[in-house]
């Protein structure tokens, strides 16, 4: 009896993952195309959400999809940060040659924060409360990476 190998897999097991943004985040990313930050506001407690969401966790009420939308500017302040020697999105070569900074930024007028890279930050600049501004990609396409990161004001 002769053996025959029909298929041989030499690679790693690979699994692809998607991330469905949903109805509210969809409007948020649509705004990116015009370099706009869209937020929604709870009519009861007045909390402003960036990114927008369906339920206000504090009041436990539903925020209707077509109401309470507001447009915010591109300025904000740093409320937390981290410095790392690893790349976040590249699995092949995770070690980064230089240190990378990531920050949680509260957009002016909102009550929540978003996480993005901090661009051209020195160690001394990494302070809570530092004023920052969005650096948009030249040709935004309506996705998360339309924001390249935050720069110092």
């Amino acid at each position: 009896m002769t053996e025959k190998v029909i298929e041989k897999n030499k690679g790693l097991v690979k699994a692809d993952f998607a991330f469905w943004v949903g109805l509210y985040m969809d409007k948020f990313y649509d705004g990116f195309e015009q370099k706009k930050i869209m937020a929604n506001k709870c009519p009861e407690c007045g909390s402003v959400f960036v990114p927008p969401r369906k339920i206000c966790g504090k009041c436990r009420i539903k925020l209707p999809i077509d109401e309470n939308w507001i447009e915010l500017g591109d300025k904000g302040k740093l409320i937390n940060f981290t410095r790392t020697a690893y790349k976040v999105s590249d699995r092949r070569a995770r070690k980064s040659k230089s240190l990378k900074d990531y920050g949680m930024v509260q957009i002016e007028g909102s009550d929540t924060a978003i996480v993005y890279p901090l661009i051209d930050f020195e160690e001394n600049d990494l302070k809570m409360g530092t004023e920052v501004k969005i650096q948009w990609k030249e040709n935004p396409s309506g996705g998360p990476s339309d924001i390249e990161g935050f720069v110092k004001l």
Binding site: W20, G22, K54
Partner: peptide, 16 residues
């Protein structure tokens, strides 16, 4: 494929 909703929104549909 419920790609029209995010995971929390899907759960919220059932709760509603």
């Amino acid at each position: 494929k419920r790609s029209d909703v995010s995971m929390p929104e899907l759960v919220n549909e059932a709760i509603e």
